[in-house]
């Protein structure tokens, strides 16, 4: 699947052929986007079943898949699932537990992100967790790693098999949030002037140096992720920030409006793929 080396020249050539990026985000509906995404990636990587895209680059790169399989043999995130369960089970000072905000069921992954019409905002699972903590008089958890990642590992583990199913309601504010996420995805940024889409839509399967670029389809399925590079678990928004930094752009705040909208868009176009977090990546 090593198609080409990702060189500066290639980037310029690709930019000229961009289809979606040239359109305004509002020109296509969420349903059309979902179809465009699926069709594009399934045509680009024929024979890769839809659900397999939940495994990121390992869906399309057999060399790294071997190493990944060996790591998943006894995945480094296993102890964190237990640590997360301890947080889930722990009582707040007021005697309640986290479960009191989630109907007692940790398998919540498939219920997020969703559009909160009252507050006019996208609510993600980590945001809901911290809102639960704060409403019970507990301090919120930092969003990028550590205890929240452990907790998400436990909740995601219990949610495995649920499918991404983010429907955008017919509400102008919800569609505006979705479109803001889409615009973010296709907007050039940073000193390198790359958009998310340059690498993970148009150039998926190509190399940046020796890394194979993962397809955008399914990008939100496997979180939290134990990255070998981090040597620990991290959240989706931590990764967003890392990607932004790599193109030498200033990252946005984890769980701020920008990344929540981005997660909303990315989740919707990955609808139908199973949540399979926590997972291991290079």
């Amino acid at each position: 699947m090593r198609l080409r080396t990702f060189a500066a020249a290639a980037v310029c050539a690709l930019a000229a052929t961009t289809v979606m990026a040239d359109k305004r985000a509002a020109d296509t509906s969420p349903a059309e986007d979902l179809k465009t995404y699926r069709d594009y990636f399934q045509k680009r990587f024929p024979g890769v079943p839809l659900n397999e895209f939940g495994n990121g680059v390992y869906a399309i790169d057999n060399v790294s898949r071997d190493s990944w399989n060996a790591v998943e043999e006894f995945p480094p995130y296993e102890p964190m699932i237990e640590a997360g369960q301890a947080i889930w089970d722990a009582r707040f000072a007021n005697g309640k537990r986290l479960g009191s905000c989630f109907g007692g069921d940790p398998a919540q992954r498939g219920n997020f992100p969703y559009w909160d019409a009252k507050r006019k905002m996208v609510v993600t699972l980590p945001l809901a967790i911290n809102e639960c903590l704060e409403s019970n008089g507990e301090p919120p958890l930092p969003y990028r790693k550590g205890r929240i990642a452990d907790l998400l590992a436990f909740m995601s583990y219990r949610s495995r098999g649920q499918k991404i199913n983010v429907e955008i309601p017919d509400d102008p504010d919800a569609i505006a949030a979705y479109n803001a996420g889409k615009s973010f995805y296709f907007a050039r940024r940073g000193q390198l002037n790359f958009s998310c889409a340059h690498c993970h839509f148009e150039s998926a399967g190509m190399n940046v140096r020796t890394d194979v670029l993962s397809p955008a389809l399914g990008h939100t399925s496997g979180w939290p992720v134990y990255r070998s590079k981090w040597g620990e678990l991290g959240t989706l928004h931590r990764r967003f920030a890392g990607c932004n930094r790599r193109v030498r752009a200033k990252p946005f705040a984890a769980q701020g409006t920008e990344y929540r909208n981005l997660e909303y868009f990315l989740s919707h176009v990955s609808n139908g793929i199973e949540y399979n977090g926590p997972s291991a990546r290079k």
Partner: peptide, 22 residues
């Protein structure tokens, strides 16, 4: 606590042990 996770499985006469340490 619990810095070691162990899985030990018997297959025929051979026990395969897999362990992960933090």
């Amino acid at each position: 606590k619990k810095s070691i996770k162990i899985r030990a499985k018997l297959k025929g006469d051979t026990t395969q042990v897999k362990t992960l340490m933090t």
